[in-house]
Amino acid sequence: MRFDIITVLPGLLESPFAHSILQRAQKKDLLEIHVHNLREYANNKHKSVDDYPYGGGSGMVMQIEPFAACIEKLQSEREYDDIIYMTPDGVTLNQQLANELSTVQNIMILCGHYKGIDQRIRDIYVTKEISVGDYVLSGGELPAAIVVDAIARLIPGVLSDETSALSDSFQDGLLDAPLYTRPADWRGHKVPDILLSGHEGKIAAWRDEQQLIRTKERRPDLLND
């Protein structure tokens, strides 16, 4: 699977992709992540990619020409299943969407900055608009990293235990059950006896019950959907 990310701040994306699971996935050739500096496609000597908005107002808007040049160059090299724009007014990322996106081959992600990008880029090139929550960040780089991480861990072979992702929160519409490890007794705080019993059927039933209890307490909206 390949991700191409377009940004004015490529340095912001160096660390998230250079460690842990995503680093190992790239080393095993299960995943390619390419970050493209939008300023390289600017058509002026100062390499600026933003300008004042038509109609007035505060802030700056990212111009159409650098984005179009970069997108079209990438499209000339391969076909993309989706071109995603990270924006607070997009559809909220959830596990179902991550599952769907993990089945495709090539994804391009556009990172906005300043006040946002020229609407014509969204109208002409973008196939999906995704938000990571009802809040505003300084740019789309951190949301892009979140999207890549959420998708990549679902690719077969990326996780050492492929069944792990199947038991994550939200995969079955519920939050995960409480988790414990050694020691069994820490300062009088003990692991539930059922988890030490070795009875797989009873443990599975306990986990199912705890998932339901935790979801009712913390995210009852998931049960109402």
Rank of each mutant, 00 (worst) to 15 (best):
186 W>E: 09
158 V>D: 01
198 G>Q: 11
225 D>F: 05
172 D>Y: 07
124 I>E: 12
65 E>C: 05
93 L>N: 02
170 F>L: 09
83 I>W: 03
84 I>T: 04
78 R>F: 10
158 V>S: 03
224 N>L: 12
54 Y>T: 10
222 L>V: 10
106 N>H: 15
142 L>G: 03
38 L>T: 04
212 L>Q: 12
171 Q>P: 06
47 K>I: 07
51 D>R: 12
145 A>H: 01
64 I>Q: 07
45 K>D: 11
10 P>G: 03
111 C>Y: 09
216 K>S: 15
67 F>Y: 08
37 N>Y: 08
160 S>Q: 08
7 T>P: 00
92 T>R: 15
16 P>L: 08
50 D>V: 14
222 L>I: 10
175 L>P: 06
115 K>A: 01
153 R>W: 01
97 L>F: 01
191 V>I: 04
143 P>T: 12
87 T>A: 05
196 L>Y: 06
53 P>W: 08
225 D>H: 10
97 L>I: 07
37 N>K: 09
37 N>I: 06
23 Q>R: 04
221 D>T: 09
111 C>F: 11
101 L>T: 09
126 V>T: 01
146 I>A: 08
158 V>A: 00
42 A>F: 05
143 P>Y: 13
159 L>T: 05
148 V>A: 14
8 V>E: 05
151 I>G: 04
92 T>I: 13
131 S>Q: 06
191 V>L: 03
216 K>F: 14
225 D>M: 11
206 W>N: 01
137 L>Y: 08
19 H>L: 15
106 N>T: 12
4 D>Q: 03
197 S>Q: 05
39 R>K: 12
179 L>I: 15
179 L>E: 15
100 E>A: 13
224 N>M: 13
214 R>G: 05
101 L>I: 11
222 L>M: 14
65 E>L: 12
214 R>D: 03
39 R>P: 08
54 Y>I: 10
80 Y>L: 01
140 G>Y: 03
107 I>A: 02
131 S>W: 05
54 Y>K: 08
22 L>W: 04
212 L>K: 12
117 I>L: 14
36 H>Y: 14
30 L>Y: 14
157 G>C: 01
195 L>I: 00
106 N>E: 12
156 P>Q: 02
23 Q>F: 00
168 D>H: 00
77 E>A: 13
76 S>D: 10
32 E>C: 09
125 Y>H: 11
51 D>N: 11
195 L>G: 00
148 V>Q: 12
103 T>F: 06
211 Q>L: 03
90 G>Q: 06
20 S>H: 02
168 D>V: 05
216 K>T: 15
213 I>K: 10
3 F>A: 04
161 D>W: 02
152 A>N: 00
63 Q>K: 14
10 P>H: 04
34 H>P: 08
24 R>M: 11
102 S>N: 08
97 L>S: 00
